[in-house]
Design a protein around this nucleic acid. Structure first.
Length: 265
DNA sequence: ATGGCCATCGCGGATGGA
């Protein structure tokens, strides 16, 4: 079975890309970020026609997240945002997923981590507060759901291998030691960066700026991640970034990340 | 090609993203 995450940078604009991609990549679970639409505008019917059931959590203009599950799979115990962490911004959606492929259910958390703008800014402080709240909540989630996947736009590079110009971007947003330390505190709960469980091409990135010919020059960052719990680690079979949609006309600036898990268990 | 983004809101240009 396969799971994927994709920051679509407006589902209103990118729905045709999502449908085209799902037609050739019928993943069992797809987490979407940056919907940029209110819940009444969510394209539930178009996705149902494509064979997907969804849970979504949107807002006007910014943010917004969704989980899609290939039919006849199901979504239960849906949680929106982090319990106990008051937040105006729609950034998290979690659900217990029964995949169409069968096997035991998975707890899947789709997240759009705050950008943080710049170290020292109010938004950076919010990003660190949000990360602390996420960690505290994940500790509880993992206790209840050992088979857990955390995936989305983390807006953090794990280390310098995730950065096209590590020296030039040292201690800039997405690359600061404070962000990376907060992320390591999440990893310490027993979560693993699925992408790095496998050999990968050098300079593997998931986001490229729209400007400066960044994509053709492969000047990007790896900030979109799929992390899996200890219990799922033995089931991981492959993880890759699909750069193809980034080459399409009017693309998202992010590429999808895809994880293959053994369906058993 | 001597400057190079995109989406939103809303109709100009600010804001946010990364």
């Amino acid at each position: 079975m396969t799971l994927a995450t994709w920051n679509v940078n407006s589902l209103g604009v990118r729905l045709p890309h999502v449908l085209d991609w799902l037609a050739t990549h019928p993943v069992d679970v797809l987490a979407l970020q940056e919907l940029k639409l209110t819940d009444d505008k969510f394209p539930v019917q178009a996705l149902a026609q494509a064979g997907y059931t969804a849970a979504w959590f949107g807002q006007k203009t910014y943010n917004g997240v969704a989980l899609l599950v290939r039919m006849p799979g199901s979504l239960d115990e849906v949680q929106r945002n982090i319990p106990g962490f008051a937040d105006e911004q729609a950034r998290v959606i979690a659900a217990t997923v029964q995949p169409a492929a069968g096997g035991a259910p998975l707890r899947v958390i789709g997240a759009y981590f705050p950008n943080g703008q710049a170290p020292g800014s109010d938004k950076f402080a919010y990003k660190l507060r949000w990360l602390q709240a996420l960690r505290d909540w994940l500790a509880q989630e993992l206790a209840r759901h050992p088979r857990l996947v955390l995936m989305g736009d983390f807006n953090i590079t794990v280390d310098d291998d995730d950065v096209w110009d590590p020296e030039g971007l040292r201690e800039t947003i997405h690359c600061t030691s404070a962000e990376r330390a907060a992320l390591q505190a999440v990893a310490a709960l027993g979560l693993h960066d699925a992408f790095r469980l496998f050999p990968q091409p050098p300079r593997s990135f998931s986001w490229w700026d729209y400007r400066q010919l960044a994509f053709p020059k492969n000047q990007g960052l790896r900030i979109d991640h799929i992390w899996i719990s200890d219990a799922l680690r033995p089931l991981a079979q492959a993880c890759r970034i699909d750069r193809a949609p980034r080459k399409w006309k009017q693309p998202s600036d992010h590429a999808p990340v895809v994880l293959t898990l053994a369906a058993c268990g």
